[in-house]
Simulated assay, not measured.
Amino acid sequence: MVGYDSMWEPGEPGVPADLRPEIPHPARMYDYYLGGKDNFPSDRAAAERALAANPEFRSTARANRAFLTRAVRSVAAAGIDQFLDIGTGIPTAGNTHQIAQAVDPGARVVYVDNDPIVLAHARALMGGTAVGRTTVIQADLREPEKLLDAAEAEKLLDFDRPVGLVLAAVLHFVPDHQRPYDAVRTLLDVLAPGSHLVLSHGTADFIPAAVRDRVTGVYDRATAPLVGRTREEVGAFLDGLEVLDPGVVTVPLWRPEGTPEAGADRVSMYGAVARKA
């Protein structure tokens, strides 16, 4: 994939204004942590400041991607053949549609994001399989009713049947005053029984307060703040659902495929999968 840096430089006449390349964006910073090239100098500078405060950001991002692979594969293996992935971020290897369609070639996926650069890249990867279909829409998690209307308009998801709702590393960019718990509840209320929620969420449970403050200070100057929630606060997103084993754990400990590395229980990202009864 061609990186945006190879096409545009901040300040060039050809840069669309809505990309806001001069302001760091969490999705583009995350792409940088993962070694991607779809980011601007402002994103790289902010990401380096975050890494200077907490060098584990890069390994945490990779652990989260590995969790997503295991979790989506598990949900697809349980018979879910349609997915709603919100806040998908810059596409990299191992996207939700690739994981799900490796289990069920007919699986359908709707990606949702509110960032133009994410949408542009996601649309470039929407080939899917010969049977399964993927699409991407522009909508915002903070406006769940509008998001659901947009997803339904695509006629790719059948909300009368179970859906896999993926909220991977997105809710920690929604502060409490923007009512993230209400947004998740609104989404879940629409989904049919048997639907699954795949959730990962950043935490400051394992880092000193001074490190937390330095990291959040970096994101306060980006397009979205970073809100690290406790294990109990992350678990509250799953209220009323059947939380699958092993529960809410750090992402490397969610059904690992090998022996977790030392310190896996202190990675600053929780993950869980839950089922709607």
Rank of each mutant, 00 (worst) to 15 (best):
G3L: 05
V273A: 04
P41D: 08
T250I: 03
A17T: 12
E261G: 14
E232R: 14
M269K: 01
G79T: 01
M269C: 15
K276I: 05
F57T: 04
V248M: 05
H196S: 03
R266L: 11
R221N: 06
L68M: 12
D140E: 14
H201F: 08
I86P: 03
V198N: 07
V72A: 01
D213W: 02
D239E: 15
V234I: 12
H172R: 02
A153N: 06
D85Q: 00
D160G: 15
A236C: 09
G240K: 11
R179N: 15
P55Q: 04
G258H: 14
V248E: 03
M1Y: 01
V243D: 10
T60C: 11
R161S: 14
G36T: 07
R58G: 05
D220P: 00
S59K: 07
R255C: 08
F67R: 02
T134R: 02
L199P: 04
R275K: 14
D81E: 13
G235F: 12
R255L: 14
A168G: 09
A17V: 14
A236P: 03
P24K: 02
T60V: 14
A93I: 08
T134M: 05
R179V: 07
S42P: 08
A122R: 01
A272L: 00
G14Q: 15
A277L: 11
Q82Y: 09
K276M: 06
L197K: 06
D265N: 11
V267I: 15
E12C: 04
H196R: 14
E48A: 08
E22P: 00
V15I: 14
S195A: 05
V251G: 00
R73E: 15
A76C: 07
R142K: 13
V131Y: 05
R229G: 10
D239Y: 04
T203S: 15
R266M: 03
E233V: 08
R212D: 11
E257S: 13
T259D: 15
A183V: 01
G240L: 12
P260N: 10
M29F: 05
E233C: 05
D239L: 06
Q138M: 07
H25F: 00
A210Q: 13
R212V: 01
V15Y: 10
S195W: 07
R65S: 09
L171I: 10
F57S: 03
A272N: 02
I86Q: 06
V211K: 02
H25D: 13
F83R: 07
L19S: 01
G87P: 10
V136R: 00
I99W: 05
T88P: 04
V267A: 08
V75N: 03
G106D: 09
P225C: 11
G11V: 06
A52R: 14
G35F: 10
R58Q: 15
A66N: 08
F206D: 00
G127R: 12
T135H: 03
R142Y: 00
F159T: 08
A274S: 06
A78C: 07
N39P: 12
T230K: 08
R65W: 05
R49V: 00
M1K: 07
K37D: 15
L197T: 06
Y219I: 03
A236M: 11
R161W: 02
R266I: 09
H196Q: 09
V215F: 05
S59C: 02
V118T: 05
